[in-house]
C-alpha cells in the first residue's frame, strides 16, 4: 500500500467523521444548535460536537473575535491535533463585519490563524453551514485543506501578529 493510497484512505476517513469543537466564539453560534439537533442533523454526515480540543478536528470561528477570545482560541487551536481545520462563519472574520470600527474586535482572522474556508452571511443559515461543511469535506478529500501545515511553516509570523494584537499595538502609545 503506497503512501498515496494510505493518505487517501486517511483523508476519506477524516472527511466522513469531522468532529467539531463545542466552542461558541461569536454570535454565529446561535445557528449551530439547529444544525446539530433534529431539524438539520449534521450527525448524518458523521459530524459530532466534542467537549475538549484534544478530540476535535474542526474549529469553527462563528462570527467576530474579540482580543480576549482570540487568546483562548489560539490556545485551543494549538491543543488540537493535526490535521485540523478552521472554518470562519459570517462577514466578521473576512473584513471586520459590522464591528469594523470597534476597538476590541480583530478585523481579519487571516492574520492570526490559517483559515481553510470562509462562509458569507451575517449569521449564515443552517443550509449555508451545511454547504460549507460539504465544501470542506470535498477539500479534505482532494487534500487542499492545508491550514495546519501553513500554521506550522509560518509559526513565527503568526505568533508575532498575535502578540501585537494581544498588546493592543504598541504599549508606549
Amino acid at each position: 500500500m503506497k503512501y498515496e493510497e494510505w493518505s487517501k484512505i486517511s483523508r476519506i476517513a477524516s472527511k466522513k467523521s469531522l468532529w467539531i469543537l463545542h466552542f461558541c466564539t461569536g454570535c454565529g453560534a446561535i445557528e449551530m444548535p439547529p444544525v446539530m439537533t433534529s431539524r438539520f442533523d449534521m450527525e448524518r454526515f458523521g459530524m459530532a460536537p466534542m467537549a475538549t480540543p484534544r478530540q476535535a478536528d474542526v474549529l469553527l470561528i462563528t462570527g467576530y473575535l474579540t482580543v480576549k477570545t482570540l487568546k483562548r482560541v489560539i490556545q485551543v487551536y494549538e491543543q488540537m491535533q493535526d490535521p485540523k481545520y478552521v472554518v470562519a462563519f459570517g462577514s466578521c472574520p473576512i473584513n471586520g463585519g459590522m464591528y469594523w470600527d470597534s476597538y476590541n474586535t480583530i478585523n481579519q482572522l487571516d492574520k492570526y490563524l490559517p483559515v481553510d474556508l470562509y462562509l458569507a452571511g451575517c449569521m449564515p443559515r443552517p443550509e449555508g453551514i451545511i454547504n460549507a461543511m460539504m465544501e470542506l469535506m470535498e477539500m479534505i478529500e482532494k487534500g487542499e485543506a492545508r491550514g495546519w501545515e501553513k500554521y506550522r511553516k509560518n509559526y513565527e509570523k503568526y505568533k508575532k501578529n498575535q502578540e501585537m494584537a494581544f498588546k493592543f499595538g504598541k504599549v508606549e502609545e
Binding site: 470562509y118 458569507a120 449564515p124 443550509e127 449555508g128
Partner: peptide, 26 residues
C-alpha cells in the same frame, strides 16, 4: 441567494449586477 463559500477573501467583494437570480444549484 445566500450561498457563497470560498477559500480566498477577495472573492467576497464584487459588483452586484442584475443577476437573473437563478436559485443556486441546491
Amino acid at each position: 441567494n445566500f450561498k457563497l463559500i470560498d477559500v480566498d477573501r477577495e472573492k467576497f467583494r464584487f459588483m452586484p449586477t442584475q443577476l437573473n437570480v437563478k436559485r443556486d444549484d441546491y
